[in-house]
Design a protein around this nucleic acid. Structure first.
Lengths: 260, 260
DNA sequence: CACCGTGTTCCGTAATACGCAACGGAGGTT
DNA sequence: AACCTCCGTTGCGTATTACGGAACACGGTG
């Protein structure tokens, strides 16, 4: 499902594209051996071996011990630093996330709009986090997450319609797949200034998000809290929304945007 | 100075190697145009263009607006998440850095030993940071940094000697380049449990570091504070060392290592 | 309006990365 | 302990692939 040759763009460099595919595979799987990588990319073992070793020479890939599977390497941090240097949300969002996560005891995320998906740029786990999953860098569907709804609700109308006209994939039993219903929810989101997500992405997972405003009053990101359904009850939402709003304002200020 | 062809390893994939060089260049410079990249790598503009666009298609590179210079792209966060998921120092070090940076008002770094250099894996800027430089992912010489001295002092004797026998590059007027003197300093570092760096890396820059211990009592990282010489005076050192020690213990605990 | 500096596109060439197959090493199994 | 199997690496020959050259397109500027 990764990259079937849908008429490869002639201007793209094949081996580089494959190398990035290797990195993406490792990021997704955590680790993988040469044979597995070769199979996944649909290339010969020798090719995979050479690609991996080239990346290893640059420390973008490393292997457990002498003869183990490969992982993403430490050298990648060089670039992570470079991207966080530009993306204010990341640099400044970390502390904000951490603080709020400590206070709520739930996992807190900051996400930005990236094309047709919500991209998590920062995260802090709550003290009572059950599964310690890392969402940083993960893309999540806009219609099935609280952050996504907030970002989508703030997007220009044509952008919104373009997405609504596409297929709304069902991620969990309660995912909103009806465009009409989603349109209504987005309107409510814009009015209320927050969005919830009740088992729409994953069974048993609730979340709630509020927008983060930029200097011109536009929505530049969303900050959300997520946790197990039994803990993030409907009743607790107003309290959490208020906490999120405080964090959101804090974030705006730290990013140098005048408070409204 | 980047990559002169010192008999390119035949098993390496040239274009992938070049692509990574592009990324490293962007990480270093912040941004660059096609022509500049081509010149720096010593390749033709057309080659550089293709490499960059391949990376852009995967969102590892993005450009400012429609016709601007190129930067490291958001897609890189995918990998950043993957590496931080494995490297405990990064995941857990962030909050610790932030807290200490807030308290001291100086920039705090966590570094690990990576071959012959100290690799900064986490950073938080102090409130009064003058230059907001990002050191995450940066490699710094072991003999000219406080973290480096701490890490080196804890390294096995043969490793230490190997490095001392190599050339000690002079980074600033006061860099220690004499192996005999450095050997003495390292012994002192091991005894004292901290190391300083007074304008040895950069004129006007002082720093001080303490070790971070792993579960078996071995040194796994170093945590350091850095700032302008006039602010990090010799007199203030004991106080800062004490703060660093607290943070170091905190870090060890958070990483699940039993306190000694 | 012509000029310079961008970056992109087309094209022919040969360098380059590919797939193949054989090799070498570890671990596990009988 | 010898066998076997699985994994990764190395040489090798081929043709795919990426490269460099030059011309082109696009803006900004004098």
């Amino acid at each position: 499902m990764s990259n079937s040759e849908v008429a490869r763009d002639k201007t793209l460099v094949q081996s580089v594209d494959r190398a990035v595919a290797v990195l993406e595979l490792l990021a997704r799987n955590g680790e993988a051996g040469i044979t597995e990588i070769a199979a996944e990319l649909g290339v010969h073992k020798s090719s995979a071996s050479r690609l991996v070793h080239t990346l290893q020479a640059r420390e973008l890939v490393e292997q457990e011990g002498e003869r183990g599977p490969f992982r993403i390497g430490i050298g990648m941090l060089r670039f992570a630093g470079a991207v966080t240097g530009q993306l204010d949300y990341v640099r400044v969002g970390g502390p904000v996330c951490t603080e709020l996560a400590d206070r709520l005891g739930e996992t807190v995320n900051i996400a930005v709009l990236d094309g047709d998906v919500a991209l998590n740029v920062s995260q802090a786990r709550g003290s009572s986090a059950v599964a310690a999953q890392n969402w940083v860098g993960q893309r999540t569907p806009l219609h099935a997450t609280s952050s996504g709804k907030v970002l989508l609700a703030a997007a220009p109308a044509d952008e919104q319609e373009r997405l609504l006209s596409g297929e709304l994939e069902s991620c969990a039993p309660r995912t909103i797949t009806d465009p009409v219903k989603l349109r209504y929810v987005l309107r409510r989101t814009a009015e209320d200034g927050f969005a919830t997500c009740m088992e729409e992405l994953e069974a048993g997972l609730h979340a709630v998000a509020v927008p983060v405003f930029g200097s011109r009053g536009d929505v530049v990101a969303a900050i959300s809290a997520a946790g197990p359904a039994y803990r993030l009850s409907q009743k607790r939402m107003p309290e959490i929304v208020e906490e999120l709003r405080v964090a959101s304002r804090d974030l705006s200020v730290r990013m140098g945007h005048p408070v409204l």
